[in-house]
Design a protein around this nucleic acid. Sequence first.
DNA 1: CGGATAACTTAGCCGATGCTAAGTTAGCAT
DNA 2: ATGCTAACTTAGCATCGGCTAAGTTATCCG
Lengths: 141, 141
Amino acid sequence: MDSHTHQRIRRDHATELAEDYVEVIDDIISKSGICRAVDLVEHFQVTHATVSNAVGRLVRDGFAKSQAYQPIELTAKGKRLASKARYRHETVKSFLRRLGVSEEAARIDSEGIEHHVGKETLDAMQRVLTEGWPAEPEAGE
Amino acid sequence: MDSHTHQRIRRDHATELAEDYVEVIDDIISKSGICRAVDLVEHFQVTHATVSNAVGRLVRDGFAKSQAYQPIELTAKGKRLASKARYRHETVKSFLRRLGVSEEAARIDSEGIEHHVGKETLDAMQRVLTEGWPAEPEAGE
DNA sequence: CGGATAACTTAGCCGATGCTAAGTTAGCAT
DNA sequence: ATGCTAACTTAGCATCGGCTAAGTTATCCG
Ligand SMILES: [Mn+2]
Ligand SMILES: [Mn+2]
Ligand SMILES: [Mn+2]
Ligand SMILES: [Mn+2]
């Protein structure tokens, strides 16, 4: 019964980096017009070589376009992933804030949690944000 | 300000597998007396070779003891990590259930989420389980 | 226009986590 | 006691996501 759980986790991890990258690339393009590798170096606190490899995988997987020494762009597929990732990320972060967690902790924890939140959990969090907490389980009555 | 977030995530990922392993090893020993590699193969749905390598890393890092072809045991350090991981894992899972998420989804999502929940978020979840939901943010009044 | 410099790529390395295939050991049943 | 079988290890491979070091290109300034 439990046999597929860890396969799901491994799959989540495989797509995690792509989700973080496209979301950030999309943000940077919105704010600055273009996204350069150096912006990603700064954001993720990794080296240029690491960003170059990661962007190469995004291109290979059809999420991004790039020509050597030129700014990075997203494909339609990349933009779709970015939207989905941002919605989930923001929902998780807002939910944690609503739970009483500080801005700092909500920012940090949501960055990891977001990738492991399935539809049902996401919907439950969203419901809290729009409709408030679910009913308490009443003891008597 | 945001510069350490992704380092935290990378650190979480590095310890994630060890946490899952020691928790499961501890469970299996509780239930069956001993834990064999084949039990972990079954649980994680990976091959024997993969388990053998992973257990090798646990031994290298001081979480487990093992002699060739013999059952796996945990060190004191391993047992401490298992307890901590189980507490966090169960808190996250119970919290999701409390949120209205199904048993199935809570089991799957908590398996990934647990590793990214910091102290503040964990405490907030635990508080909900013992004291109920935090106050709604009142509009008027 | 020509450098200097910043941005980027490439090569080569590492460890973690997965795999298959092949070899080894332990333990049970006859 | 011996041999079968299941359990386990080892070797060899792949990909990912990091790194450093070295080479390449773009860009901007004088
Ligand atoms: Mn994100
Ligand atoms: Mn993230
Ligand atoms: Mn766990
Ligand atoms: Mn887990």
